[in-house]
Design a protein around this nucleic acid. Sequence first.
DNA 1: GGGAGCACTTACCCAAAGGGAAGCGGTTAC
DNA 2: GTAACCGCTTCCCTTTGGGTAAGTGCTCCC
Lengths: 125, 125
Amino acid sequence: MSMIINEPLPRNEECAAALKNVLDALSVINGRWKLALLLCLMQSSKRFNEIQHEIPGISSRILAKELKDLELNYFIRRNVYPTTPVTIIYEATEYSRTLKKVLGELGAWGGLHREKIRQSMRKQS
Amino acid sequence: MSMIINEPLPRNEECAAALKNVLDALSVINGRWKLALLLCLMQSSKRFNEIQHEIPGISSRILAKELKDLELNYFIRRNVYPTTPVTIIYEATEYSRTLKKVLGELGAWGGLHREKIRQSMRKQS
DNA sequence: GGGAGCACTTACCCAAAGGGAAGCGGTTAC
DNA sequence: GTAACCGCTTCCCTTTGGGTAAGTGCTCCC
């Protein structure tokens, strides 16, 4: 018999790893706007004002900050075209597309959840 | 002011709907801890101190607040057993399990992202 | 009876997130 | 000339998140 010195079970380690993964993911794509911005830019490249128009409720200040943050983390690229005046187009990188499934599931769940809330409100009335 | 009264294309509407879904989802499961807590409790029902021990970095104050919030939104149940002293077990509801896929994808992405970061750090050195 | 553990709560304080309004330097339209 | 648009930036403010530390009422253990 081999000596098993109270190793945590593999099952537990798996759980801990999954937890760590989720925690890590959340630390990168935290905040109210990042995922929505990425989805918006994955649908098509856009200019500053177009994004602001498309995402209801975001202020220019926050938008600028989030875009900078996403660029620093290589999720988007800021392309400057030397037209007059300069045109600036934000574009999702290939790496940001690794989040596609996450966004898909999150969107699906969001729809489901809204439906559930609507139903529970109907019951109450 | 040019008046171009273009109907948004159906494609655009789809995009807008997807965006709204994601935005809605984020408004419910926002914050650093909620998804991690749900994952933790979906793995198995636990007591307060067990959760605190399992999630590195969370303080009792925040844990209590988040648990209350999740209970209010029917993601978890707080079961009180009349032992002496009382035993309190937090349990994920069936509804919270609708987030399983989201958590799966998020965890998978978190692992992938950590790997990518590690590689880019290795390159730099 | 002293200490420790459970499940929190309370008080205090700090930092980050985020909202609103205004401005700025450039250009184009009237 | 002036108004408006673009892509921001700056200032100021409130809200929220979160850390520390202490306390509470209960019970079990030595």
